[in-house]
Write a protein that binds this DNA or RNA. Sequence first.
DNA 1: ACAAACATGTAATAAGTTACATGATTGG
DNA 2: CCAATCATGTAACTTATTACATGTTTGT
Lengths: 187, 187
Amino acid sequence: MLNYIILGMIFDCTASGYDIKKYIEKGIGIFYKASYGSIYPTLKKLTEDGLVTVTKEEQGARQKKLYTITAEGQQIFLKWLSEPISPEEGNGNNSHLARVYFYDKLPYETVKQQLLDYELNNTTYLRKLLLLKDNFQSPDIQGKYYYKISTLYYGIAILQETIRWCQFIRGREPFENFLNKGGLNNE
Amino acid sequence: MLNYIILGMIFDCTASGYDIKKYIEKGIGIFYKASYGSIYPTLKKLTEDGLVTVTKEEQGARQKKLYTITAEGQQIFLKWLSEPISPEEGNGNNSHLARVYFYDKLPYETVKQQLLDYELNNTTYLRKLLLLKDNFQSPDIQGKYYYKISTLYYGIAILQETIRWCQFIRGREPFENFLNKGGLNNE
DNA sequence: ACAAACATGTAATAAGTTACATGATTGG
DNA sequence: CCAATCATGTAACTTATTACATGTTTGT
């Protein structure tokens, strides 16, 4: 995963390992973290595989290694990006978001198709959970297993929001209409 | 994590490694998966640490190892369960749910406190994201970085649902009032 | 002067997955 | 009889984290 994220982050601008860490924090820090202990070794491997090249830049005594994506690197990245979002992706770990983050680099038709597939997978899964929940309707079961059941309802709520989000961004609707009113909102 | 989940799963009933796998699938399979390649070694370590004991049961030529939690195991489990849900927990990976799943074993006051803390952390985070989103309001930025921005809105939506869920289950309200109407719902 | 940020990296460890390897029992 | 399920485990590998180790430059 990190290898693709690095390729995406330097897709149209050269950067150092240190820079990449900051790009990740600023860009997808909400749902993905990477430490130097993983970034530097990954950069090394990407170099060995010929997906990036490195140029040393010296500013006085301070050294800096700038990484540039190669044509093969771009190809590999775009291939990964075009692949469908697998059902496990986004299921718990939000790694589907890392993919979507880079969707501005993909043709609109591809994006639409992947988002539709992802939405359908989520809908299928939601249907299953909605049926499951019906097994836990009696008051005595809800009393004894309240919190166990609550995790099921959490899953349902998150799936519903995910589906709503998919439908919304598939249509590239303006975000001002996205947020639910109610709760805390700063307008 | 898996060590605690196993302790929780056999907290009040003895089970085999095979059983545990099924309990996990049935119970928290929505947001957590475990393979035999992690379950059996973990069971071995728990035995070495004295948190579980094992008894061999032979049914004909078929052997089965039944694991029972020890007093120390129960103590360690309840200690873990009582700890606050850390902010990273639930942030991307939904491991907070594994904790909540076992909350029926905890005094109501403890549960209420942990859920309140967790809700507050989420609220703080939500406030930060709501401010962040204001930096991306101009139409040309939304055109160029639509999908990047979409991940921010996803985060906001999920946080809002998480907070709503926290408030709801903190009050132990009946689930019939939880689900949002609209979208696909089977009633 | 000193803290924060810039900058790169390694070693030990953690926590798991996947594929392999083996065999018994049950239900149709 | 044969597929599915029951039942346990190991070996190689993946992917990351944490702590360590080192040194520079900028801003106050």
